[in-house]
Design a protein around this nucleic acid. Sequence first.
DNA 1: GAGTGGTCTAGACCACGGT
DNA 2: CCGTGGTCTAGACCACTCG
Lengths: 253, 253
Amino acid sequence: MGTTQLESVPEPKYWHLKTVLSEALDSEFTVGEILPNERDLAARFGVARATLRQALEQLELEGRLQRRRGVGTTGAPPRMGVAVGNDQQVWPGTGDDAWQAVDCTLATPPAVVATALETARDRAVHIVRRSRVSHGQPVAAELLYIPVTSVPDLTAIDTPSEAARARAVLRELQRLELEGQDRAVELGSARADDARELDRLPGAPVLVVTTRFFAGGRTAALSVATYRADTCRLTFGASGGVEIHHGPERQAS
Amino acid sequence: MGTTQLESVPEPKYWHLKTVLSEALDSEFTVGEILPNERDLAARFGVARATLRQALEQLELEGRLQRRRGVGTTGAPPRMGVAVGNDQQVWPGTGDDAWQAVDCTLATPPAVVATALETARDRAVHIVRRSRVSHGQPVAAELLYIPVTSVPDLTAIDTPSEAARARAVLRELQRLELEGQDRAVELGSARADDARELDRLPGAPVLVVTTRFFAGGRTAALSVATYRADTCRLTFGASGGVEIHHGPERQAS
DNA sequence: GAGTGGTCTAGACCACGGT
DNA sequence: CCGTGGTCTAGACCACTCG
């Protein structure tokens, strides 16, 4: 690689650093290999640690590396494809292995959820927590809001565990006829509890997938699933997702 | 002798700041209103500017506010829903209002694209650039890679503009029978050219939507679309979804 | 206890948008 | 020109993991 050409508009240092490190990751480091610590790297490049960190943050955001406090910085494997929607629309928990029910509580939903459900603010809803694991790693945490009116026949429960109660609610929900659903994806940052479940620090970037389930002319359930943005590539559609994709570089203009 | 401290986990300052500011945005500021500059805010909260900025960065990531160099920091409108996939699978540029063709070049694709297209590294592809505007704002930039073999009958062109050539390629592509498509969403950071087109700084967070189009048993085209993550909520509407949102025509200032 | 990444400070200068 | 956010520095201390 040549020397950087001096430009009329100087490139920020951290941006140039990011490029250099990215290339080094491609050529000189293997996945999982730990690279020098931040103080050494900063010294090696002749920049302040904060500047070096700015580059590392971007690379972590792009899923190129992984940093763990007390341990070090390692090269990251390519993002895993996580199927989040096949064409068929189904209730949550249907023939599903990907998600695992955790627990279930009965509470009044936050304001945003209430409006999305078109329910009164003070109507209680079931809140089912589920978690999703892929390739041995936690990849998503979900909160499923189900108005009590959607599962009226839910028998008074005498279940051994929270998880069992969650499954009972889902089973009841599946008896309704699903009329349609609706999905949105946006960027967010992990709340404290989600962060813990996803093994990340609070504020870590996440992809929030919001799904509305329609039945009986109403919104019968609302799912808010937060996926680790650094390790996941959300896939929609038929095939099982093949290609990875990082990368810069296009021909010059 | 230790006195046991119950709240032994101190919340980071920037995290607390973020919460306070977020509440202030909800109650005390209207959309578009400019809030005090960073130096004032930092002084007001008794923290260093860098710490204050850490909080602002998160809020910007979540689409709560918008910062522009030389201007200031303003409250942001709710994210706009951007339809990125209806169930029907169609070729790009079909009955299309959302996207606008910009130009078209012929070049060899980057390595990642070549493998995704299952084409030889040195085979040229058409690269069509398109941009998408919603509510008067640029929201996405797209690169469409189309192997020359997908549009063999493309006549030697004598078009007045680059944009016209782009449209010609798309028209030719639409003559094939679309056998299926494949989508993935992941987090990325804007390359320099995309950033310019999206009116953001390089490195700004973007949602990268990769779509593969299948025809004739091959991947006939590959679309890589980068959406502004701060202002966009990608919707995959299926049903007769009730999408609202709001082009709030507030007075220009 | 040693070493790692995470947080925080108090400055400085730069690039940009408006006047 | 001025004021804004963007970049950068050279330190410091904290929280965590591991041997």
